[in-house]
């Protein structure tokens, strides 16, 4: 094979791959969640930090006993993150500010396009039509890829069992409540109705309506409406979101978009490249090999 032909083939092949992956990326990036997806709207201006949601979650999900009781307010000294023992935690911010403190509940946001699901190579995660991101602990191998992939640092790792390592996180009370249309336990117990349960599409309208009718109370932003491709949990706030523990650097693109182009190439590389390069290798070997044999045999003759 001539060098020029080889380069030409590479160029054509490369262009095809580049065009193919671009189209694929565009097509699957437009998913906006299931139409009947449910969700929860969190109004951080209503939360009083009573931690009832933590207690209700603990009971509903049969989680282990907490280190201290749920009316212990000293836990607010340090911001916490969800763990395998507590699928939801309430953090306190802006304590010194007038009008403060501001409380924010943290749990899985149940993304429309979950990064945990994308990163899981045993397909333990499922996004249900009700909007919950659930997981099958029986197939989980405890690789913790989802912990790294999650943009909200949600999945917790259960170190309790050596033989059955599993990731644990909020499942929106899917098994016990959501499946039959009931609100999650945290929403049910919230005394202030800081948590509003409903169809995600309705909640977005409600959130914007609250902003419209109370412009002084809220910032004009519904966190989770667009972030990382949209989440089932949505947030309203009167304080800048970055000051109450939200990551303002997250883009509106789903996390999967960062790796989709790359991942789309993997099967192609694995299937086409071996064949292509073996072919090239054989061709080139055939040419040069033939000449070599002839030369050798000529030398042996005398």
């Amino acid at each position: 094979m001539k060098r020029r032909n080889f380069l030409k083939a590479c160029l054509i092949g490369g262009t095809t791959i580049a065009m193919g992956k671009t189209n694929k990326g565009w097509a699957s990036g437009s998913f906006e969640g299931y139409p009947e997806s449910m969700g929860v709207l969190v109004d951080t201006t209503r939360c009083i930090g009573c931690r009832s949601c933590e207690a209700a979650c603990n009971k509903e999900q049969k989680l282990p006993e907490p280190d201290t009781s749920f009316d212990d307010k000293s836990v607010f000294e340090e911001p916490r993150r969800p763990t395998a023992k507590a699928y939801t935690v309430v953090n306190q911010y802006e304590k010194e500010k007038p009008g403060g403190p501001v409380y924010r509940k943290v749990q899985c946001n149940h993304c429309n396009e979950p990064a945990c699901l994308t990163s899981c190579f045993v397909n333990a995660y499922t996004k249900t039509k009700e909007g919950a991101v659930i997981y099958n602990s029986k197939v989980c191998v405890g690789c913790r890829n989802c912990m790294i992939a999650c943009p909200f640092n949600v999945p917790g790792y259960d170190y309790e069992s050596v033989t059955n390592p599993v990731i644990k996180k909020c499942i929106l009370c899917y098994d016990t409540r959501l499946k039959v249309g009931k609100p999650p336990a945290c929403v049910d117990i919230c005394p202030q109705e800081a948590l509003t349960f409903g169809h995600r599409a309705d909640l977005i309208k409600i959130a914007h309506e609250r902003i419209r009718s109370n412009p002084d109370r809220y910032l004009d932003h519904v966190y989770g409406e667009k972030e990382v491709g949209g989440t089932s949990w949505l947030y309203l706030s009167g304080t800048e979101f970055d000051k109450i523990g939200f990551d303002p650097s997250l883009s509106n693109d789903p996390i999967i978009s960062n790796v989709k182009d790359f991942l789309g190439m993997v099967p192609m590389v694995l299937s086409i490249w071996p064949a292509l390069f073996s072919g090239i290798h054989l061709l080139s070997k055939h040419d040069s090999g033939g000449e070599g044999h002839d030369t050798e045999s000529k030398e042996e003759e005398p």
Binding site: L63, K85, D158, S161, T163, N164, V166
Partner: peptide
């Protein structure tokens, strides 16, 4: 109140 998975095993 025990870990959910601890009950199964």
């Amino acid at each position: 109140a025990k870990p959910a998975h601890a009950k199964k095993h």
